[in-house]
Design a protein around this nucleic acid. Sequence first.
DNA 1: AACAAATATATGTTCCAACATTATATGTAT
DNA 2: ATACATATAATGTTGGAACATATATTTGTT
Lengths: 154, 154
Amino acid sequence: MSIETDIKQKKFRSPYQRMGLNLVYTSNWIQYQQMEIFREFDITSQQFNVLRILRGQHPNPIKVSDIADRMLDKNSNTSRLIDKLLVKKLVDRKSCPNDRRAVDVIITEEGLELLKKLDPEVEKWEANMTGITPDEADLISTLLDKLRNSKNNN
Amino acid sequence: MSIETDIKQKKFRSPYQRMGLNLVYTSNWIQYQQMEIFREFDITSQQFNVLRILRGQHPNPIKVSDIADRMLDKNSNTSRLIDKLLVKKLVDRKSCPNDRRAVDVIITEEGLELLKKLDPEVEKWEANMTGITPDEADLISTLLDKLRNSKNNN
DNA sequence: AACAAATATATGTTCCAACATTATATGTAT
DNA sequence: ATACATATAATGTTGGAACATATATTTGTT
């Protein structure tokens, strides 16, 4: 279905407005689909995002502020996200020796195992994106990068 | 900046994964920027979404469930959104004569005036999307439509 | 006509998001 | 060296999101 039928709107002010609405709509669509996967494993998509970032650094620790820098949602409260993951024993946390303001976070073996169980599910979902070719996926990425480089960049 | 530098991730599992992350990241980016506009007018982006839908029907009323069908976030609690708008006197609500389960909602003059003040702000923001051409915006829309028509459509 | 199922909206509850503030440590300028 | 600014993380608070459930009305079935 096109965005026109999905949100039952025929006319748009401009190609940019239509694209913007389509972008937000499609992002919601993706996130709700992935949420269904994560729910079975009792984590949220933001917690998954953090775990993947931590795995990317494993076995090195990474500071809370560096995690925040890498997140998709730059306004998320990383401190409390780590709290949740800590309770589930998916991460460890200890004060950073070099800078006693900072806190080093590291993924646990349990966390790595959870990701190992999640990986095939997420990959299976991604493999269903048959509507577009890999080249078209790259094209979307390129265009989105260009979009964010518009004047209103801040 | 590219998504690689924005989330400080060099490698991706596939073009699809990179596109998905880029999509969610860009959607968040758009929504936070627009939130800054809406904040000055004391509404949320979801409330703005509802008001625009209502204006599209004006002067006809529209049922709550039909509003929900047209929203960008299909899981939003439309009932409570209307409550908020009602308190601000931006919409009116009355029982639908044909179907007494349903509720007819209509935008007030005050609501229309608010949109009139918001329109130029939103258009000004859209006009700053100079990074891509109108044709490229259309291309993104087309590709996103195709993406959502993938197998995992449900 | 009676009852079950479906539809439309509202509400209850729990947890998370958003925003501001605080606490502590580090950097910097005089 | 001290005062002040900045950086880093945690916390307090308020309102909204997510999910389940309730209530009223309509539709469909026998």
